[in-house]
């Protein structure tokens, strides 16, 4: 299955969340790979703590693979053997493969979509789907040629299942922007329909993920004054009402990731060790990733609305 990760704006925590989802999915025993399609800023290597590709690869990265005819297969990084983080360097028993396909160092956004690029993209997705249970494709924020490319590619692969995750923060601006990215002019549905997707089917394959969510009853808020808490609570219900109006509400939400200080300071994978041994991460965050990693393939969570 192909999963496309996109966000309305930058800084939503899309990459760090989607890497954590594939990491958890691998721990659950599946073979997974992660494609860094954020060509303007290919930093997935840093999140997986693979120093050699922290800012993309100098070999054939995905950017080169798509743009140059005759280039060899894209560079693959086996995270379980190549990560610099000791806790990641041993594959836990029962875990599946965890492979990163980095972008190019100094790649840049795609200038346009052409037929050859599309053919190569279809070939890449088709081959990876043959090999991996889950293929996560991390796209750059907002509307881009990369998003257009993958929308076209999936039209040509009618038997390969795919799903979209739209990441947004729990604020007024982000809720409106997330709705616009999907339903707005030149949004995913518009562009998808233009290239041959059925609008309703495509809509059913899109779910929203809220990031850095601060629940009004969270432990972090204990020190706040009553007035502040009341204000936050009022804001939260206002946002819920807004999300409902913009069709970004609970029914189309796949999950939410609580605000975790560790992710504000450093984008990284949250291992069980971070939660249990060093205790730098919150158990709720790891549980949220784990839950999303299960829901992403759970058909019940993706039933048509």
């Amino acid at each position: 299955m192909l999963i496309f990760a996109i966000s309305d704006k930058g800084g939503t925590g899309r990459s760090v969340t989607s890497t954590n989802i594939v990491y958890r999915h691998a721990l659950q025993g599946n073979d997974v790979c992660y494609l860094d399609f954020d060509f303007g800023s290919p930093t997935a290597g840093a999140i997986f703590s693979v120093g050699s590709v922290a800012r993309g690869t100098t070999r054939t990265g995905l950017h080169d693979y798509l743009l140059s005819e005759g280039s060899p297969e894209p560079h693959r990084v086996d995270v379980w053997t190549e990560s610099d983080r000791e806790g990641l360097r041993t594959k836990p028993p029962g875990a599946g493969r965890l492979v990163l396909l980095p972008g190019n160092e100094g790649g840049g956004e795609l200038p346009a979509v052409d037929e050859e690029m599309l053919r190569r993209c279809v070939q890449l997705f088709s081959r990876l789907d043959e090999e991996f249970d889950l293929v996560m494709i991390d796209l750059s924020a907002g509307r881009s040629f990369t998003a257009e490319l993958v929308l076209q590619a999936t039209v040509r692969l009618p038997t390969v299942p795919f799903r979209w995750l739209v990441f947004h923060r729990w604020t007024r601006q982000h809720i409106i922007a997330a709705d616009g990215l999907v339903r707005g002019g030149d949004g995913l549905l518009d562009v998808g329909a233009r290239f041959g997707h059925d609008r309703d089917t495509l809509r059913d394959r899109i779910r929203f993920v809220r990031t850095a969510v601060l629940e009004p009853d969270a432990a972090e808020l204990v020190g706040l004054r009553d007035e502040q808490r009341a204000w936050l609570s009022a804001c939260d219900s206002e946002l819920r009402e807004l999300a409902g109006r913009h069709k970004v509400g609970r029914t189309v939400m796949l999950g939410k990731i609580p605000l975790d200080p560790i992710l504000q300071w450093r984008e990284q994978l949250i291992s069980d060790e971070d939660v249990l041994a060093s205790k730098i991460a919150n158990a709720e965050t790891a549980a949220a990733f784990d839950d999303l990693a299960k829901k992403i393939v759970d058909d019940n969570a993706w039933e048509g609305l």
Binding site: D31, E130, E131, F132, D133, T159, V160
Partner: peptide, 12 residues
């Protein structure tokens, strides 16, 4: 002609 619903995923 193929449904692509393989019983397991495996590398070439």
């Amino acid at each position: 002609l193929l449904d692509r619903r393989t019983p397991f995923k495996i590398a070439r």
